[in-house]
Each structure stands twice: as structure tokens, then as C-alpha cells.
């Protein structure tokens, strides 16, 4: 648990909304990143991050203070995203292309953007059941056990899904001609 985090959580449990604001400030990028990775749409990810922090505050009494807060808030985020996907059937391909590298060579920059766009689209083509552990592993950098806790799955299932997700992603990328680092 980060420095002073337990104190912030305790204060939030006492109803101190400013303490919760500080928690939001610390975790908003990670939570938004997970939501974006899972939902593939910045506007939906923004909504999901917002909902996740409200829901987490409301359910803060269920958080075990001995455990890692990051795993818990990521689990809440993953659940919010899962519900959102279920509710809205959001499986559309990514519509937003990010502005990426800051390299000085426009051709190289363009190539990098194109490559990233293809990879983003490929991630989005994966089933949510594969996409969620993938994002938690490679964006949030959770280990297998933490992903299992976050998604409410056995650790073995997480390993299997990650393995299949990567195999599927590799297949999609190879179909699109992405074979390795340029």
C-alpha cells in the first residue's frame, strides 16, 4: 500500500471526500487505462473510470485493509467495464486513433502510428474474456494471482486465457502483416 494510503482510506471510510479525491488523483490514470484497454473507446472509458471510483467509495467498507488497494480498485474497474460491455454490447472496433510518437521523422512517426492502430484494433477484436486479463497483465502489470482476484477467476483459468489471448492476438497480427518490431 502506498505511502499514507491506508490513512486516506480510513479517512474516506469516515466520510472524508477530500481523502477519496486524493485516492482518485493517484489512481485515475491506471483506472482509466484499464477501462480504455477493455472498452476500446475513450468516452466510455472516461465514464467507466468515473463510475468505478463512485462505486468503490460506496463499497469501500468491503475492502480488506490488509490487501493491496490497487488490486481491489482494478477489480472494481474491471467489473464496471464487464457490466458496461454486457449492457451495451460494446464490441465495436476502436474508432479513436491516438497521437503517438513524438519522433522528428514524419514518415517514421506515421509508420509507428499505423502499427499502433493495427495493434489496437487487433486487441479490440479479442473477446472481452481474453481482453480483460490481457489489459490487467500488460497495462496494469498485475500478476496472475492478482488478476484472478480482480476477475474472480481461478489462477489457472487466468493463465489459460492469457495464453489463448496472446495466441489469438499473434494470429490476428500476422494476418495483418505485423511480424515483429520494425
Amino acid at each position: 500500500m502506498g505511502e499514507g494510503e491506508l490513512e486516506l482510506i480510513q479517512r474516506a471510510l469516515h466520510g472524508d471526500v477530500d481523502a477519496w479525491g486524493e485516492i482518485v488523483r493517484r489512481y485515475k490514470d491506471a483506472v482509466f487505462g484499464i477501462a480504455l484497454g477493455i472498452l476500446g473507446n475513450p468516452a466510455d472509458a472516461e465514464d467507466a473510470a468515473h463510475d468505478a471510483f463512485i462505486r468503490a467509495y460506496e463499497g469501500l467498507h468491503t475492502f480488506h485493509l490488509e490487501k493491496r488497494f490497487s488490486t481491489w480498485i482494478f477489480a472494481v474497474t474491471a467489473n464496471v467495464c464487464k457490466n458496461k460491455l454486457r449492457r451495451e454490447r460494446l464490441f465495436a472496433p476502436l474508432k479513436y486513433i491516438s497521437k503517438l510518437t513524438k519522433g522528428s521523422d514524419p514518415a517514421q512517426q506515421l509508420a509507428q502510428q499505423e502499427r499502433t492502430r493495427i495493434i489496437q484494433e487487433s486487441i479490440d477484436q479479442l473477446k472481452p474474456a481474453y481482453r480483460m486479463p490481457l489489459v490487467l497483465r500488460y497495462y496494469a502489470e498485475l500478476d496472475y494471482k492478482e488478476i484472478a482476484e480482480a476477475l474472480g477467476l481461478p489462477e489457472g483459468t487466468v493463465k489459460t486465457r492469457l495464453h489463448r489471448a496472446k495466441a489469438e492476438l499473434r494470429r490476428i497480427l500476422e494476418q495483418k502483416g505485423v511480424t515483429g518490431h520494425a
Binding site: G33, L36, S98, K99, T116, I123, V135, Y139
Partner: peptide, 9 residues
Amino acid sequence: TLTHYVDAH
């Protein structure tokens, strides 16, 4: 990719 994508938004 995920990091760049998040950074952009």
C-alpha cells in the same frame, strides 16, 4: 501500445 493509447487520452 496500451501505454501510448492511454497517454493519448
